[in-house]
Write a protein that binds this DNA or RNA. Structure first.
Lengths: 184, 184
DNA sequence: AATTTTATGTCAATAAGCTTGTACTATACG
DNA sequence: CGTATAGTACAAGCTTATTGACATAAAATT
């Protein structure tokens, strides 16, 4: 139930359509033109490129790829996540996760523990060393984001979150809404 | 000339720092926390995943990859762009562009014309058929964006643009600001 | 208890992609 | 002219991703 805490920042709450409250005016949508959509696509694209570059440089120095980064990310942000859950969220094949995960475990960056609920499952946790590396990787991204946030201001950031939220598939939103139970 | 129109929507104008106007209060930035930054990173990540998926499905059916898509995108949006310009904007190697471009040209989706200014350069243009395919590829992305825009509202979208804009490197902004001279 | 299903891990082979390096042509510029 | 630039082409070499076949262990079913 704590999910509201996080989402509170995001927007007027996913499920509710505030338009429903009352819509006397047909909600003028004439500003949604191909040009404005291209604009969004392009800004998004470049931001993503830059964000990815931030981490990629360091990643390749360590012989890691984006898969490793993603695994670290999800394990760090969702401690106790199982391999299966990662497979369904990340867009990676079985083998792919396995390889990356194996390397990370061997290097002591991620730890596997047998789930006590279902002993077939392995729960994943990031180690201190893993977290350290991960922090390094996100450092530049955070600097970039922080810069953008403070330059754009809190109101803009709320809009930023709101638009992105509506752009995301329900199935992916689930993970974003996690933490209601865990989060620990 | 049309460029101003587009940028007008985006934010308070790239170059200008409106904070400079007057900043009596130290601009409270306490809301910029690791959690809010993770939030941005994650929303952005999933939105990108979804946006990419929209096009990828169709792309792979045609035997094309993301490089092809990017080339189509940039040629369509920047008619007359040269190979060199694409190289500097896109994150792809010389060879990579060459291969993709070659295929697209051979399939009649892109046309090369020798620049009349510098006859070593080839200017790239998308053909009618190419544009058709491209429209197909962006169709789903546009639907996604349009949905998000209208759900989030124009104010939010402005914030969305603003934040992204500040997240992007100067060097990449150049292309976004193009059209001042060309755009035809 | 026997059988089936699920979750995970491993191997091996293949396919895709990307990078590099080397040549070669056509222009441009001085 | 000679050198630098823009683009094209070919191919070896490497890294990644994808697939399929199997092996285990434990949970679920019957």
């Amino acid at each position: 139930m704590a999910s509201g805490k996080v989402l509170g920042h995001v927007q007027d709450v996913p499920g509710r359509k505030k338009a429903k409250v009352r819509a006397p005016v047909p909600e003028d949508a004439s500003w949604i033109t191909p040009e404005t959509m291209y604009r969004g696509l392009e800004l998004h694209f470049f931001a993503h490129l830059n964000l990815a570059d931030d981490a990629d440089r360091q990643l390749s120095e360590l012989g890691f790829g984006r898969t490793h980064h993603r695994i670290l990310y999800f394990v760090s942000r969702t401690p106790g996540i199982t391999v299966g859950e990662m497979l369904s969220i990340l867009r990676v094949t079985h083998q792919n996760v396995q390889r990356g995960l194996g390397e990370l475990v061997r290097k002591g960056l991620i730890e596997q523990r047998t789930s006590m609920v279902d002993r077939r499952q392995r729960q994943l946790f990031i180690t201190g060393e893993g977290q350290e590396l991960f922090d390094q990787l996100t450092k530049r991204q955070f600097e970039r984001i922080s810069r953008a946030y403070s330059a754009a201001g809190q109101t803009a950031v709320k809009g930023f979150w709101k638009v992105l939220w509506h752009m995301i598939e329900d199935s992916d939103r689930e993970w974003l809404e996690r933490g209601s139970s865990k989060d620990a």
